[in-house]
Every structure is written in structure tokens, then in C-alpha cells.
Nucleic acid binder design. Structure first.
Lengths: 225, 225
DNA sequence: GTCTATATGTTGATAGAC
DNA sequence: GTCTATCAACATATAGAC
């Protein structure tokens, strides 16, 4: 037999295949056009399944949207928490440096084989859309990412003992804004720089953002008033 | 007479009033729900005018969207260019400091009586939506803001003579991301900080962002490789 | 699990009266 | 400039056959 996974559980395999194809299509289209810019028909067409299937597997449209957003969020959280744990282990008994914390936050997601995959690029653009959306930002970002971010804020609190509490949160705000704008890959930087910079180059984004935000946090951490 | 402007040109005044009300309504609704999340009917209802009027005054839906985006963009550009010119005058014959350039970019738009007006808050949320949108970001932001940004990049080039060109553009990317996420006012920071920070507090956003991005640019400006 | 068929409402755009 | 009336296309959601 050629396909072991398909032959072992043919029905389950076909189910997963369709479900996954709907998620993949939703991810791509929601990232490109936002929640209201995409119809269930367009998703079904892109996934090459029937229109009614999206409803069967995911329920209402907004539930499909949240399922799409959630799918890779959990993976991102695992990558980052693992990197943060490693940074703590490497620096013990001291807390990790601001740079090490920023690396743990940025490197796992802006580096590696996944960043060239169109599906991941779509997902990142989706996160950019959600983070800056008045409708979704406060709700979805908080629900799926805040527990992970709490861990990073706590690490920064240890690395910057003189920092005011507000400074840590506003620093995170700057970090989040810079990162998610990179996720959006709008091509604006290409135009602004006359082709010198490419906003799709996430590795290059990493190299500059990590320097920028490390310096930003360290400066915020100095001010005790 | 009570209203000189209305009585002088009653027809013109009424025209302007309707046109403006359509723009105001479009601004509010596009900011809240994005381009595809708003119908012309909803805009007409909000503006208390007939549905056909939006088409008469602005043509197609996307032209109304662009008109909404453009209206205040020109004002923002004027404020910032004026502040940048003043920074150059104050520092002459030296170039202004990075901090002075960041102040010229941020202070005029995050400070002043306009930031408490709901209309301006809507407009800022609209800019956040556009900047992070794959569909609109590269086009609209570039068209309306890049000429102004070119002036700021040039000022930074003088303030940071050792900086690599790419660093200046990626630094601007970080600045733009941090600022427009503040524009979005999603309330996420409120949740993350347990109520300590309020993402609608643009003055407070200014105080932290200006410190953060000044340090970021100065650090990026040091690296010659 | 999958698809056909359909209910029920909304969309952007405009032609033509005033 | 403004409004009434209308069009053809499309939306989400689901009931029920297979």
C-alpha cells in the first residue's frame, strides 16, 4: 500500500483531510481579507469542499474564525515558553538578560523552516489583523496569548528590578506592535526603502526588532519615575 | 442671524453638512468593523442620510473609504512636518537629536485637545486597521504618509550618521507598529496589566513609546554591521 | 460525513422622478 | 442634491436525503 495513514483509518483520514483543508482555506482567506471580507462560500471553494461542511465541522462563522486563530496559537505558546525556560536554565541562578528574554520571545517564531511556508505566513498576517482590530484584538489576543505573555512580563520584572510596572506593560505593547506589523507583510517597507528592505523577510525583521526592543526595554527599565 | 456661515451659502452649507456627516459616519464604522464589515446602508443610517447619497458624493465604496482615510491624513502630515521643522530650527546648525525627532513624530498626534474627540479616536483606529491590513497597508499608508516619513528618515540619517540604511527603515517599522497598535485601542493592555494601564490613554502611550523608540533607534544607529 | 435544496435576508449600485 | 424604487447577486444557516 502506498498510503499507510490513509489505509489504516480511511474514514478518519478523509475527515481530517477535509477539516484541515477548511482550516487551511479559512486561514489563507481570513488573513488576506479579514473576517467580514471572506464568505463561507469562498472558503468552501478554496478548500474544494461543500459549503455546508464548514458549518458541520465548526458551527457558526465566528467559531470557524476562532478555531483558525487557535490552531497555531498553542504551538507558538509552546515554542516561546520552552525558549524562556531554557533562558532561565542557562542564566541560573541569575535571571536571564533582557536580550535573552527578547530572543526567547522572537527567535522561535521568526526563525526556522516554518517561516517560508505560505500557511504560516498567512497565520502571521491573521495575527496582525486580529491584534490591531478593535473588534477582535482585546478578546482573542488576550484569550490565547496573555497567559504566555504573563510569563515573559514576569521574566522582565526580574531582569529589570528598577522598572515601574506600567513600563513593563507599555514596553510589551511596543514589542507586540512592532512584531505584528512585521507579521502583516504589507510591502510598505519595500516601497519606503526603495527596495532595500523587504517586509516579507522575517529573519531580517528579527535581527532588527530584537536590537530595537531590547534597547527600548532597558531604557524603560531605568526610569524609576 | 445666528449662523453666518449657513445663511451666507445655505445650499453649500447643507451640502457640506451631508457630505461631512457621511464621512464622519464612515470613519466611525470603518474604524470599528473594517472595510468589509460596513455596508453603505449602515453608513447612511448612521449619518441620517439617504443610501444613494454616499454614491453620489464619493462614487464607489472603496473611494469613500479612501476619502475617509485621506481627510485627516493631510492634517497629521502638516502637524508633524511643522514640528520637525521646528526641531531643526531649534537645533541649528546641528541636526536635531533622535529624541527631538521622535517627539516631532509622536507628540503632535498623541497630545492636544483632539485626542479626546471620538472622531479622532475613530480615525486613529482606522489607521491601525489600514497599517496592518495586507489589502490596504502597502497601498494606502504608502500613498498618504510615505512622503512625510521620508523627511523623518532623512532627519534620523543626519542624527545617526553611523547607522546602516536598513536599520533606519526597520527602526521606522518598529516605531510605526508600536504607534498604530496604540491607535487601535483594543483594551488588551488593560486586561494584561490587570487594569493598571489603559490602552485608550494616548498621553500615557506617548510617554512610554517615545522613550522606547528613542532608545531603539539609538541602539540601531550604533551598529555598523 | 457529505451534499442538495432552500429559507430568509442583505448587498452595492443605479435609473429616473423631483 | 436628494430620494424612491429596484435589480441581480450574494450572504449565512439549516433541514433533510443519502
Amino acid at each position: 500500500m502506498n498510503s499507510a495513514s490513509a489505509s489504516a483509518h480511511p474514514d478518519t483520514a478523509r475527515l481530517e483531510s477535509r477539516r484541515t483543508r477548511i482550516l487551511d482555506a479559512a486561514e489563507k482567506l481570513f488573513a488576506e481579507h479579514g473576517y467580514d471580507g471572506v464568505t463561507l462560500r469562498a472558503i468552501a471553494r478554496e478548500a474544494d469542499v461543500d459549503v455546508a461542511l464548514a458549518n458541520y465541522h465548526f458551527g457558526r462563522k465566528h467559531e470557524l474564525f476562532e478555531a483558525t486563530f487557535m490552531r497555531r496559537a498553542e504551538l507558538l505558546n509552546r515554542w516561546r515558553i520552552k525558549a524562556l525556560d531554557e533562558a532561565f536554565a542557562a542564566a541560573a541562578p541569575n535571571p536571564p538578560s533582557v536580550r535573552a528574554i527578547m530572543d526567547a520571545y522572537l527567535y522561535p517564531i521568526l526563525h526556522g523552516p516554518h517561516i517560508t511556508e505560505p500557511a504560516w505566513r498567512s497565520y502571521y498576517a491573521l495575527v496582525a489583523y486580529v491584534n490591531n482590530s478593535t473588534e477582535w484584538g482585546g478578546k482573542l489576543m488576550s484569550r490565547f496569548f496573555n497567559p504566555m505573555v504573563d510569563r515573559f512580563i514576569d521574566a522582565l520584572r526580574k531582569a529589570l528590578p528598577d522598572a515601574r510596572e506600567e513600563a513593563l506593560f507599555w514596553g510589551y505593547h511596543c514589542l507586540s506592535g512592532a512584531l505584528t506589523l512585521a507579521f502583516a507583510q504589507t510591502g510598505r517597507l519595500d516601497k519606503l526603502s526603495g527596495g532595500l528592505c523587504r517586509s516579507e523577510d522575517l529573519e531580517e525583521a528579527y535581527r532588527h526588532i530584537v536590537v530595537f526592543v531590547t534597547a527600548g526595554f532597558e531604557q524603560l527599565g531605568l526610569s524609576t519615575e
